[in-house]
Design a protein around this nucleic acid. Structure first.
Lengths: 226, 226
DNA sequence: CCTGGCCGTTAAGGTTTCATCAAGATCATC
DNA sequence: GATGATCTTGATGAAACCTTAACGGCCAGG
């Protein structure tokens, strides 16, 4: 039975969610502010968390960071319409998805299912092959196809490549990359990214100046394409 | 059976709607002012609401806001011709679509079907496909069908497209778009919209000068149709 | 018929962001 | 303490982007 934690300070929403989720065989626990929400995550270990951004005691992104410090429980964020920057901040902080209030129950349930499914035992393919090289995530090895021997990557280069390959096909924001590789304090040092992306491209791309696998999306981030 | 709530103070219109809707197997309930309309929404939980803006007791946008506080039931607004600003205000408040009086029954029924269909089970994955291209909200990727490679969108273009796609099938006012993409301070810079809509159409539409998916609603806003 | 408002389109300017290079700082190892 | 690899930092030219203004088409109202 899937456990859901609802953190919202509006009783009507909490009630509606409790009724609908219970009817669909979810196990529901609730909290009405950020502090007790964090406590509830630690206590109940929910499989997924629904979090309202407009809590009375603390900022929603603070709650997300508090959870993400030690848990990867999927988080679906509820936000009122028009607070675009808030939503972006929440996603950057580690939220998995968002729904704007007012929401349709069907939509929320769909996103809930999707979030739980994504979190399920990741059938991670540990080896990714492109037309020119092969990345083995488990063995931490990169080898050029046809050519022998493996490509030597420095620790930082490897971490960067790993994040990109794990999100292959998807765009990864600069902030996310910096946060995962260098830590939260380096969110703005986009210079590092450029230097290391250049090094990766020099070592992996057939034409480093015309990237084919490690793509730049100007203003947004990078994408690994296999 | 689909439940429709009609809120209008003109008996002739209520009667005409009741007859036509009942004949087409809708279950109809009615109310003649805003207050009882709100009560009826809470009591009957209609699948869709048809709301006249010219009610005796309260402003139409007030009714919409009252509903939107806790429900996302689709709302189709009826307004007399010429009250453009009223319609925009209603859409901004959260209405889904509008029909100007006098209206053709066929048109109203079409919009009714569209609104109900839209509210039905939302797709699990945030991937929207049209006849000519596919939008993946999670991966931030747009690909032309058949053609390979993805279409390169700038950050602003992407944000604009995202708002439209998330509200697919439904009219989004200029103000809403400007606020979500550029921020509350740019509510009147409708020039930006024209420039970026043109760019999106050039990149996505098969015939940019004859839009098929990114539609203009003159005086109101834009609509993404899949 | 003319006028004004709204929309679509285009192009140029200024600004931000990106790629590349190279030199200093840091770290691990011996 | 010396050495080599790795990581930071700064500078520069190039590319992409955002903004802004101008022009023309279309439609409605006078």
């Amino acid at each position: 039975m899937t456990r859901v934690l609802v953190v919202d300070d509006e009783p009507s929403i909490v009630r509606a969610l409790r009724i609908n989720l219970t009817a669909r065989k979810y196990e529901v626990s609730t909290a009405s502010d950020g502090a007790s929400g964090l406590a509830a995550v630690a206590r109940d270990r929910p499989d997924v968390m629904i979090l309202d951004l407009g809590l009375p005691d603390m900022d929603g992104t603070e709650v997300i960071r508090g959870v993400r410090g030690w848990s990867s429980t999927p988080i679906i964020v509820l936000s009122v319409w028009g607070q675009e920057s808030q939503k972006v901040a929440a996603l950057d902080a580690g939220a998995d998805d968002y729904v704007t209030k007012p929401f349709g129950m069907d939509e929320l349930l769909a996103r809930l299912r999707a979030a739980v499914r994504r979190a399920a035992p990741a059938p991670d393919e540990p080896v990714v092959t492109t037309g020119h090289f092969t990345v083995d995530l488990a063995a931490k090895r990169v080898a050029r196809n046809g050519g022998d021997g493996n490509v030597g990557l420095t620790p930082t280069e490897w971490q960067l490549l790993e994040v990109l390959v794990r999100n292959r096909g998807r765009l990864v924001t600069q902030r996310q990359l910096l946060q995962e590789v260098w830590g939260p304090a380096y969110e703005t040092e986009s210079n590092y990214l450029r230097v290391y992306m250049a090094q990766l491209r020099r070592k992996l791309e057939p034409e480093p100046s015309r990237p084919r696998y490690l793509l730049t999306e100007p203003g947004m981030g990078y994408r690994f394409e296999a």
